[in-house]
């Protein structure tokens, strides 16, 4: 895990919030997106406004798909506060070589077989940023990536 990230996550856990943890299987594309569907249902049960739920779940879904495509899966965590929803995606994949380039709409390193599955258009990261209020990317080549997304309620 990239340095400096553990502390951030511990801080999150110290707060009074509801938290959930999902293992995202990187070996099987069929299950990609399952965790986000579960998160959407959790957020619906709690009763957040539909638009807030949509933003948080789409952002997580894009991130979850990315983890499966690029990083061999990872861990997705959900922290629910009264005034915000925080999603933390942690993987031990190759890391993102150029974050600014990866954030450009249409830029993708996904192989053709992923495009045949309907993804890899280079919209994932820009979309995650668009749907969230704060997005933080910590990445280290060869070590992994931690993406923290916050949606204010």
């Amino acid at each position: 895990m990239p340095a400096g990230l553990q502390a951030k996550r511990v801080n999150e856990l110290d707060c009074e919030c509801l938290s959930y943890r999902f293992e995202v299987d990187g070996s099987n594309f069929t299950t990609a997106g399952e965790a986000s569907v579960q998160v959407k249902r959790i957020l619906r049960r709690i009763g957040f406004p539909p638009e807030t739920i949509k933003r948080a779940s789409i952002a997580m879904y894009e991130g979850e798909i990315n983890m499966v495509i690029h990083a061999g899966g990872g861990i997705a965590e959900l922290f629910i506060y009264e005034d915000k929803i925080v999603v933390v995606l942690t993987d031990h994949g190759p890391g993102i070589a150029d974050v600014a380039l990866a954030m450009k709409e249409g830029y993708s390193t996904a192989p053709d077989n992923i495009r045949a599955l309907g993804f890899g258009a280079g919209m994932g990261l820009p979309n995650m940023k668009r749907y969230t209020d704060i997005m933080d990317i910590q990445t280290a080549l060869g070590k992994g990536t931690v993406i923290t997304m916050t949606v204010n309620v």
């Binding site: 986000s36 949509k54 779940s57 789409i58 599955l117 309907g118």
Partner: peptide, 17 residues
């Protein structure tokens, strides 16, 4: 409407309400 058939089609539709 889509010609793509995999579970992510349904999950994407669910994400988009």
């Amino acid at each position: 409407l889509t010609g793509l058939v995999n579970p992510q089609v349904i999950r994407t539709a669910e994400m988009m309400d």
